[in-house]
Design a binder for these strands. Structure first.
Length: 861
RNA sequence: GCCGGGAUGGCGAAAUUGGCAGACGCAGCGGACUUAAAAUCCGCAGGCCCGAAAGGGCUGUGGGGGUUCGAUUCCCCCUCCCGGCACCA
């Protein structure tokens, strides 16, 4: 510790101790929260005819569970900082919030606490809204959307009718996913590794039920193709959606059942097995047909064959077990020969029909042709059951001398040439696929086709707390849509909710019994409700015109806010990559085809923030590592909580919450506060600061460097952690020079400028403190829309540079040179440096490298 | 198996185009202020070694190799962690 440091510290201490008060975040934040809430227009977007450029920033709306968690705080702090930054840059910002408020938890709460779902939900919304306001998020509450209210869900019903009119909503009996805990059907997207997305310990059952489906597959191709246009989305999400859509080009081929043998009588005469293959070129190598154990023909065969039935049931059980274990990909292949044959339509050859546990009924046609020589799985299977392996493709080598005639099997490559394939021998695979598909089509036993992994969206839920599906069943007229004028179909209240026994609505006679709009006779109402993902598929359009009671929204208004490319910035968790984000893309395309909007995609730029974890694990009640936002706000203040959630990690990475870290942020906020308190009076921008001292120039330089760093990050990579570090460095710089600036008259203009810009820089991240200080320095207007500070490249330039000098790539010395020094000057200084001379003495300089303004490297021998 | 992301001090992290590794913060240590503590302010701080100190040397970004005057950054191989997809025919 030097003498100088001691005296400096003493000086700081002496300066104006009375004004050196502690920052009382609770008091200041309470004051501003009240002021902000008393002005409902504060965060309201300008009307859609505004001349300003629009910016629509949106965070995914929460489910009103009753309390915010730290993941919400992080998500909303990112969006809020961006919204505030855009306001300060003069944009017309739309920053709304709402509630995804239908769903099962409300029903469970109703059963446990005897509280009606509506009451429970609206109470939670009020609590969470109060939390959001306390944290200071800048939402335009005049546009609040609550999906469980009839004002909103009537438009779900309206959309359903439009979908139905266009054949995009239909009713179908099929195997569907049933969660025994939710007591309802789930969409494919809501089943993860064979388990319910809400109950990870619960296996989903397959039940055959009649359900409503939305024809998302009609848009499968467009959903896939447009992913290429979504350059503002994370590659990860685009890949996940590509995988989920799972487009696969191939050929359907009919194998006729063989009746030549004595075992006539299986299947109707002329029945065929339709197989899907991407490699029709290998069909001359097909040595068996493999059926999924659930295939209808298998059921026919097994009906009169108890032994086969038992074996097939065994295969089904194996498949289910593998699915339950989450490793259907690892299943040990088993199969059973049915004793029957099918005819290969290309060469009229008889091939045995097998049933195998690795064939999935829900992909393709549930039947394949097995080509052991050219498919891994078929090869394994054929080896195990000693089926014929027949080579039909040879790899093509560039060098004809090296042509392989006995490739290692299975040979999977597409880049080959057909052999043993009748008239197609000699063709290359790609060519053969085209010709053979065309041949099959011309002869009526097949056609080129495209298969998708994605299935139509099953939206029926046997639950109470959701949007009633606006359909009726009449004995005379069958399925009848509720007329548009009769919407909304109101969800009745005071319903006795139980989980078992089907939809609770089925036990409400006033609801069920209706009149058929066609014949006037009695009709039954549909008692299932819609999947809650319907609600969130279009909610962001409703924000643009939240109180419209004649349409879901006004098209012109929506077009202003969505433009041609959608929401400017959408922020949320990656867990919705193939749920909400694929459904809402589908819904947008449908609304476009209805003529409501002109954009093809709902979201131009998507940001997926990382999780908030603690002690290396996701926060959860069972681990006891939950951090409560309320507690953080009470202990450290809302500014500290949101600033820390941005500072601790880049926003796209997981954030490891540390209580000691937020204490550091609290200290930083106090440091800013004390500095401005001490200097608010001394600073006077009216006094010109002409001849600045080196310290003054240094402080101003740091200011402009900081403005640049923070602005650049908002424009580009969003590493708010380094933005906040930069602001901390600026504050450290101010402290380092404080005593030299504070006393001097000429410094006061500079001080005023720096303080003002510092407050502006903090405003998007710590709005409470920023507003308090804004007022303290005597500014009048609202900080929310104060112009963002401008960066001046001249003022940010360093006057002197410290140039590291390396010798053979190793750092040996540093020299200080004027910023505008020539290469020659820098090199001479480097060579003249004592330490450098000591190292290179007696050696020969082979090469001199100067990287402008950055470094010198001398290569010596 | 395939496709992403990641691995840097005691901890969270930074290094934006191949150019001083560890900014900023936490925890730690020392000092000032205080009767004392808290708060605050000032400093030190990757590791190992030499030195009383000033200072100096070596080493260091998961591991191994390569390109380069120079690699956390580019290339090849490998290990581990996280996420997604998976007999998809």
């Amino acid at each position: 510790m030097s003498q100088e440091n001691n005296s400096k510290a003493a000086m700081m201490q002496q300066r104006d101790p009375e004004r050196d008060e502690r920052y009382n975040a609770q008091r200041v934040e309470a004051k501003w929260a009240e002021r902000w809430q008393s002005d409902p227009q504060l965060y309201a977007a300008d009307p859609a005819d505004s001349a300003k450029k629009k910016f629509y920033v949106l965070e995914m709306l929460p489910y009103p569970s009753g309390a915010l968690h730290m993941g919400h705080v992080r998500n909303y702090s990112i969006g809020d900082a961006l919204a505030r930054y855009m306001w300060m840059n003069g944009y017309n910002v739309l920053h709304p919030m709402g509630w995804d408020s239908f769903g099962l938890p409300a029903e469970n709460a109703a059963i446990q606490n005897r509280t009606p779902p509506r009451e429970w939900t609206l109470g939670n919304i009020a609590r969470m809204k109060a939390q959001m306001n306390r944290i200071g998020f800048a939402y335009d509450w005049s546009r609040e959307v609550t999906t469980c209210l009839p004002e909103y869900y009537r438009w779900n019903q309206w959309f359903f009718l439009k979908l139905y009119e266009r054949g995009l909503a239909y009713r179908k009996k099929s195997l569907v996913n049933w969660c025994p805990k939710c007591c309802t059907v789930l969409a494919n997207e809501q089943v993860v590794d064979g388990r319910c997305w809400r109950h990870e310990d619960t296996l989903v059952e397959q039940r055959e039920l009649e359900q409503w489906f939305l024809r998302i597959t009609k848009y499968a191709d467009e959903l896939l193709r447009d992913l290429d246009e979504l350059g503002g989305w994370p590659e990860k999400v685009r890949t996940m959606q590509r995988n989920w859509i799972g487009r696969s080009e191939g050929t359907l081929i009919d194998f006729k059942l063989d009746y030549a043998e004595p075992h006539k009588g299986f299947g109707p005469a002329g029945a065929t097995i339709k197989v899907f293959t991407t490699r029709v070129d290998t069909i001359y190598g097909a040595t068996s047909v493999q059926l999924a154990p659930q295939h209808p023909i298998v059921a026919d065969l097994a009906a009169s064959n108890a032994d086969l039935r038992a074996k097939v049931d065994q295969l089904i059980a194996e498949q289910r077990n593998a699915r339950e274990a989450g490793d259907i990909g690892e299943i040990e292949k088993h199969g059973v020969f049915t004793g029957r044959y099918a005819i290969n339509p290309f060469n009229q050859e008889k091939v045995p029909i097998w049933v195998a546990n690795y064939i999935l009924m829900d992909y393709g046609t549930g039947a394949i042709m097995s080509v052991p020589a050219h498919d891994d799985r078929d090869y394994d299977f054929a080896k195990k059951y000693k089926l014929e392996i027949r080579l039909v493709v040879l790899p093509i080598s560039n060098d004809p001398e090296e042509t392989v005639t006995e490739p290692v099997l299975p040979y999977i490559g597409h880049d080959g040439m057909l052999v043993n394939s009748g008239p197609y021998s000699g063709l290359e695979c790609i060519e053969a696929i085209k010709k053979m598909s065309a041949f099959a089509e011309q002869n009526g036993f097949g056609k080129a086709t495209v298969t998708y992994r994605i299935k139509d969206w099953g939206i029926s839920r046997q639950r109470y707390w959701g949007t009633p599906i606006p359909m009726l069943y009449c004995d005379k007229d069958g399925i009848v849509a509720v007329p548009e004028k009769d919407l909304p179909v109101i969800l009745p209240e005071n319903v006795d909710i139980t989980l078992a026994g089907g939809s609770p609505l089925g036990r409400v006679p006033e609801f069920v019994n209706a009149t058929c709009p066609k014949c006037g006779g009695p009709a039954r109402r549909e008692t299932d409700t819609m999947d809650t993902f319907v609600d969130s598929s279009w909610y962001f359009y409703r924000y643009t015109d939240a109180h419209d009671d004649r349409a879901p929204f006004d098209s012109k208004t929506a077009q202003y806010w969505f433009g041609e490319r959608g929401i400017d910035q959408y922020i949320g968790g990656v867990e919705h990559a193939i749920l909400h984000l694929i459904y809402s893309r589908f819904w947008t395309k449908f609304m476009r085809d209805l003529g409501l909007i002109t954009n093809d995609e709902p979201v131009e730029r998507l940001f997926t923030q990382g999780m908030v974890i603690k002690d290396g694990a996701k926060m959860s009640k069972s681990l006891g590592n939950i951090v409560s936002p309320d507690e953080m706000v009470a202990r450290y203040g809302a500014d500290a909580a949101r600033l820390y959630s941005l500072f601790a990690a880049p926003p796209d990475r997981d954030l490891d919450w540390q209580d000691s870290g937020i204490e550091g942020i609290q200290r930083f906020l106090g440091r800013v506060y004390r500095f401005v308190v001490r200097n608010a009076g001394a600073a006077d921008s009216s006094r010109a600061g002409a001849n600045l001292s080196p310290e003054e120039r240094q402080v101003r330089r740091k200011l402009h460097q900081t403005i640049k760093r923070v602005s650049d990050d908002f424009q580009g990579r969003w590493h708010f952690n380094t933005c906040i570090s930069a602001i901390m460095e600026l504050v450290n710089e101010l402290y380092a020079h404080e005593e030299k600036l504070a006393g001097k008259e000429s410094s006061s203009a500079l001080l005023a400028e720096v303080q003002r810009d510092l407050i502006l820089l903090l405003a998007p991240f710590a709005p409470y403190l920023a507003n308090e200080l804004w007022e303290m320095i005597g500014e009048k207007g609202t900080l929310l829309k104060a112009p963002w500070p401008k960066y001046d490249a001249e003022l940010a330039k360093e006057e002197e540079l410290e140039i590291p000098v390396q010798i053979n790539g190793k750092l040996r010395s540093r020299i200080i040179v004027p910023a505008n020094s020539s290469e020659e000057y820098v090199m001479n200084q480097a060579l003249a440096d004592e330490k450098v001379r000591a190292v290179i003495s007696g050696k020969q300089i082979v090469k001199k490298i100067y990287v402008g303004g950055k470094l010198v490297n001398l290569v010596v021998r």
